[in-house]
Design a protein around this nucleic acid. Sequence first.
DNA 1: TATTGTTATACTCTATAACTATA
DNA 2: TATAGTTATAGAGTATAACAATA
Lengths: 155, 155
Amino acid sequence: MSGTHVLDSLLALTQILQADQERELDRRGLTGPRTHLLWVLHHGGPATQVQLSEALAVTPRHITTLVDALDATGLARRKPHPTDRRAVLVHLTDRGTSLMEAMDAEHDELGAALVDGLDHDTVRALIRGLDHVRAQLEGLIAEHERAQREREENP
Amino acid sequence: MSGTHVLDSLLALTQILQADQERELDRRGLTGPRTHLLWVLHHGGPATQVQLSEALAVTPRHITTLVDALDATGLARRKPHPTDRRAVLVHLTDRGTSLMEAMDAEHDELGAALVDGLDHDTVRALIRGLDHVRAQLEGLIAEHERAQREREENP
DNA sequence: TATTGTTATACTCTATAACTATA
DNA sequence: TATAGTTATAGAGTATAACAATA
């Protein structure tokens, strides 16, 4: 009973959170994947497109598209890789950097606002509960994957 | 500090949950929006395309595309509206119905598994925390929208 | 005149396959 | 021969605008 309640709360919250994030991105003319790429550059420094494709878990081909769009809007640029002439290094422009700084600050503000008014013990319990749920979920997924592999190996 | 921790836990959990859901849908040859549409039909009964476009918050045009795909895979069908000859009623086929029953059962199982091992008090605190976070978020959004309207009305 | 659904067009996310230039 | 990135093509989610049939 209450398990379903937790799951439904979580899903509802997820949906509201995402809708809000998307509105904020929209206001700035950004999309989720492009912002993710900017975030990776902001927190990891300049990177090749292959590195970005691993970080975002998408194909290198798609990174080309995303970087093209960010270049067109002046948030990121390509420059030649200093030692490998096949590769490029993608880096933030000044505008890209200050955008990411503003978004990081907003993220911290949002985090603080969400738990404002909750006593310390409830926050602790909330974090503990979320960690537990995550561990359970990861256990389930590992189990699914094991079952999947077995199904593939046997008739 | 711990507010950011809560937000980050929430976002990480969201991501894992979604990736898992998407894998399950993929296994069945479904996509998120199409499944959402099936879910609305399962829990609300046959509906016109305009009603579906309101329920999913997408354009009526896009509902045409989604229903076409579900019709092609035999999960939903159109039939004439009994009283309004402009409209159609979209309804689940038998296959669509049993698919949604199976997915509802899986959803309940997942909910139960997520809190398995947590004592009752922690589950209560978790639910209370999630409700609080959601209320805070909705308050923030309402405030943003108010500020937005003011910005639009004034120079 | 307003509403229901569809044709036409376009943008974005995403993938695979084939190709070029370099290692 | 393997790797970095791009051209070509395609499916899916999404939108707007224009239009037909019916209310």
